[in-house]
């Protein structure tokens, strides 16, 4: 019961509500004041936005269309948008000729392990920093924040040497292990969210004799679940799409993540001018994230807007 009050008092929710329905704003504007000129303006804006939308979508449509073309259609002038006979065979060849399948598996292993374990460590740390009696709380938090200021390229060489000394090169471990210790940006965001949770419910749980682990797992984690879910999805997408760290570590084709696999296919098949295969593989590589996005688009866009305006 106290949980619901915590959430309704949460300024985050009220702030995002406007974004969920951008068209339904302007309550102060009466129908009378919508003059002809605003209607012409709306129409003009709609046309411009549509033209822009075509520019945004055309390359992606072209990618799918190319993947279904024959090799001769690819080089046809004027260009072919809808292949005469869609070459679904491209997608069959893809699974046979390359490491796409293992790429999928590896990307999934890395992204799932990091996000599941990482969000737990981040939530625990955010709880300790925001709500618990933690010695040197500020020092720890600010110290962790300094980590943001060091860009990955500065760290990549020493990290590579560390991991190569313990024989982790060409395994997924260097991509997983550092990340499951937590991500300071996620901690930062969850800590912000926890600021809105009243201390009284934690005090009440303490009086009832709950251990801190129980308080965290049974009380806090359910409260911050919306924020955790948002960070989880954004983090998953970032890791799935990562390219620099995987190409440093992964050399054997069967051990590479999907992004590295398609990049290598791009080099390998370009010499054979097999653009349908390259485009098909690239499309497959962005398909899972595209699907996640289309399903959770409202939540994703809201949490992106939030993390930006809060930051």
């Amino acid at each position: 019961m106290s949980l619901t009050t915590a959430q309704s008092r949460d300024p985050l929710n009220t702030k995002t509500r406007g974004l969920a329905s951008p068209g339904r704003k302007a309550p102060g504007r009466t129908p009378m004041s919508r003059t002809t000129s605003t209607r012409i303006g709306d129409w003009l804006v709609f046309t411009l936005l549509s033209a822009g939308a075509i520019v945004m979508v055309a390359p992606l449509v072209w990618m799918v269309s190319t993947s279904l073309k024959t090799k001769t259609e690819v080089f046809a002038l004027p260009p072919v948008w809808i292949p005469e006979v869609p070459q679904w065979d491209t997608y069959v060849r893809m699974w046979q000729d390359s490491s796409i399948l293992t790429g999928f598996q590896n990307s999934f292993i890395v992204a799932a392990t990091v996000t599941v374990l990482g969000t737990i460590t981040c939530s625990m740390a955010a709880f300790a920093i925001a709500k618990m009696r933690l010695p040197f709380s500020n020092l720890i938090f600010v110290g962790l924040l300094t980590g943001i200021m060091i860009p990955y390229p500065t760290l990549m060489i020493p990290q590579f040497v560390m991991f190569s000394r313990i024989g982790w090169v060409d395994t997924l471990l260097p991509l997983i292990v550092p990340a499951i210790f937590g991500n300071i940006l996620v901690i930062f965001f969850l800590r912000q969210y926890l600021e809105n949770v009243p201390n009284s419910i934690i005090e009440a749980a303490k009086i009832d004799g709950a251990s801190f682990w129980q308080i965290f797992w049974r009380l806090i984690f359910p409260i911050i679940r919306p924020a955790v879910a948002a960070q989880f999805i954004l983090w998953f997408m970032a890791i799935w799409n990562d390219y620099l760290a995987p190409i440093l570590y992964l050399n054997t084709p069967g051990r590479q993540t999907l992004q590295v696999v398609i990049a290598n296919m791009n080099v390998q098949y370009a010499t054979q001018r097999d653009y349908p295969l390259i485009m098909g593989a690239s499309f497959i590589a962005l398909l899972p994230i595209l699907a996640i996005f289309l399903i959770f688009q409202r939540q994703i866009i809201e949490s992106v807007a939030l993390s930006g305006t809060k930051g």
């Binding site: 822009g52 939308a53 945004m56 979508v57 992606l60 997408m237 799935w240 799409n241 390219y243 999907l258 992004q259 590295v260 398609i262 990049a263 690239s282 499309f283 590589a285 962005l286 994230i289 595209l290 996005f293 688009q297 994703i300 866009i301």
Partner: peptide
């Protein structure tokens, strides 16, 4: 539509 390129893999 405008957001789709943002979530798409940069490599692809």
């Amino acid at each position: 539509i405008y957001y789709v390129p943002v979530i798409s893999s940069l490599a692809a």
